[in-house]
Computed example of a mutant assay.
Amino acid sequence: MELQPLFETPNFTIAHDDLHHWLYISWRGEYDCTAVITGCILILRHIELTKSQKILNDSSQVLDGWNEVTRWVGEAFFQELANHGVRAVAWVKAEDWPAQAAINEAMQYVSQPLADTFDDTVAACRWLENIR
């Protein structure tokens, strides 16, 4: 991946993969409801700027803190992604068990766009590459 950084904090990164024309999102550490929603809003803004139709959402380094927003992420945020033209989201699961459970719960509410979870970024990238 050749990534162009678009936004970066110690716990959150948004970058654009120029070769594949998708956004790479990296979440690290603990989050609360406000931080998750703020990150999601930033993602939507960068989708508007880049016109990306795919997202590699890397939560492998996320720790607990998503339980309060799992339904909102799965229903409202993913619907907004679809409304913004996103066709596919590959979500790399957290290694932290409570965070992984929250991701699994959020995925139960996703109706669109096409989304799947993965244990590593290599598998997630392969899946995204095959989405046309």
Rank of each mutant, 00 (worst) to 15 (best):
W22Q: 13
L23C: 10
Y24D: 08
I25Y: 09
I25L: 15
S26Y: 07
S26K: 15
S26T: 12
W27N: 01
R28F: 01
E30V: 01
Y31R: 05
Y31C: 04
C33P: 03
C33G: 12
C33Y: 03
T34I: 12
T34K: 14
T34V: 14
A35C: 00
I37P: 08
G39W: 01
G39E: 03
G39T: 01
G39V: 02
C40F: 00
C40A: 05
I41D: 12
I41F: 06
I41Y: 06
L42Q: 13
L42W: 12
L42I: 08
L42T: 05
I43H: 10
I43M: 14
I43C: 14
L44I: 12
L44P: 08
R45D: 14
R45F: 09
H46L: 09
I47E: 04
E48T: 15
E48C: 07
L49K: 09
T50C: 00
T50F: 11
T50R: 08
K51L: 13
S52Y: 03
Q53L: 00
Q53Y: 02
K54F: 00
K54I: 01
I55A: 00
N57V: 10
D58F: 02
S59H: 15
S60K: 06
S60Q: 07
S60C: 10
Q61A: 07
V62M: 15
V62E: 04
D64A: 15
D64F: 14
D64V: 13
D64E: 14
G65C: 10
G65N: 12
N67R: 15
N67E: 15
N67Q: 15
E68I: 03
V69K: 07
V69R: 04
V69Y: 08
V69Q: 11
R71W: 07
W72M: 02
W72D: 03
V73P: 04
V73W: 01
V73M: 12
E75T: 11
A76Q: 02
A76Y: 00
F77H: 07
F77R: 04
F78K: 08
F78Y: 13
L81M: 10
A82P: 03
A82W: 00
A82M: 00
H84F: 07
V86K: 11
R87Y: 06
A88K: 06
V89T: 03
V89F: 01
A90H: 02
A90I: 03
W91V: 11
V92K: 14
K93P: 07
E95S: 01
W97R: 03
W97L: 08
P98V: 10
P98W: 10
P98A: 11
P98T: 07
A99I: 13
A99L: 13
A99W: 14
A99K: 15
Q100T: 06
Q100C: 13
A101C: 11
I103K: 11
N104F: 05
N104V: 00
E105R: 11
A106F: 05
A106Y: 06
A106V: 11
M107Q: 06
Q108P: 08
V110G: 12
V110M: 12
V110P: 14
S111P: 04
P113T: 03
P113E: 04
A115P: 05
A115E: 04
A115Y: 05
D116L: 01
D116S: 04
T117D: 01
F118S: 14
F118T: 13
